[in-house]
Design a protein around this nucleic acid. Structure first.
Lengths: 148, 148
DNA sequence: GTCAAAGTTGACGCTAGCGTCAACGGAAGC
DNA sequence: GCTTCCGTTGACGCTAGCGTCAACTTTGAC
């Protein structure tokens, strides 16, 4: 596993579609600590992995501080700290599971909306009963409103 | 279904554990539009439902603008608009599914961390081989570090 | 009447998470 | 030499999402 490749700041920025400014910001906040070649930042394979975790954390709605906390729990090497780390991780898991439920609910809701819109669009003013179609639309609209 | 009960601002605030300030803010941003009794806001059962959606949206990481967009798509009543609404909803569904994957991945990751921490804690300096236990801890620690 | 509780509308403040200069330093091509 | 990238460190700016007064009204209890 020769993963000793390194990256420049703009390489990483391009790869993950963030700006170099963001990477420096994460460093300021202690989330990344690339080595230096003179002044220039040199990102290792592990820095890259951390960045992935940071971005994933952001996508699921964590603040940079929360992400840092999670990453920092690795520094644990005493038993007492391991205990509290464990607690925190477990709490996070519970929170994430709740969030997954929210996401699932949102998806379901949107599927419902989509289905209703599809129904409406599937009725392009029926030739034999325009009035009936109109009535149906009104009804569908009402249901949409009521869902609100 | 007699759901014509109404709510005051502080009732809703308490129920959903947000501040009255937040509710007024959502109104400013056009996400809620309660009726008025003089100056006082009167929230209906539908306002309450909208609030639930707003908060759920926030929990899954949507901005207030995005939430408003989704809610506003209901106002659609022309076919052309229904088409674009449909597209937007579908795009949202795709985005949410990606987010669910992120959440699942995060949960899995944390489960991995927890398992490793539990292993460490399950080895309280074995009586017959303290040295070996120490070595194990070092190894476990190394693996944790490498995961980073 | 008056007193407290709950409501109202501004208006200003604050944090997070960067974007956007400004001013500068090598290194590489010509 | 000069220019052109790519990088650096400040420093200021900006938006979102409220928190927090301030100053006032309305309403019910007593």
């Amino acid at each position: 596993m020769k993963t000793d490749r390194t990256y420049t700041i703009s390489e990483l920025a391009r790869e993950f579609d963030v700006t170099a400014r963001a990477l420096r910001f994460y460093e300021d906040k202690g989330l990344l600590t690339p080595r230096r070649d003179g002044l220039n930042r040199v990102y290792s394979h592990r820095d890259r992995a951390r960045l992935q975790l940071i971005l994933r954390g952001k996508r699921v709605g964590l603040s940079l501080l929360e992400i840092k906390e999670i990453l920092d729990l690795y520094k644990v090497d005493q038993r007492a700290q391991a205990q509290t780390a464990l607690k925190k991780y477990r709490a996070r898991i519970v929170a994430f599971e709740a969030q997954r439920e929210d996401v699932d609910a949102a998806i379901e809701m949107l599927h419902g909306y989509v289905a209703q819109l599809e129904e409406i669009l599937a009725k392009p003013a029926a030739p034999a009963a325009v009035g009936a179609a109109r009535a149906f639309e009104q009804e569908a609209k009402k249901r949409l409103q009521d869902a609100h």
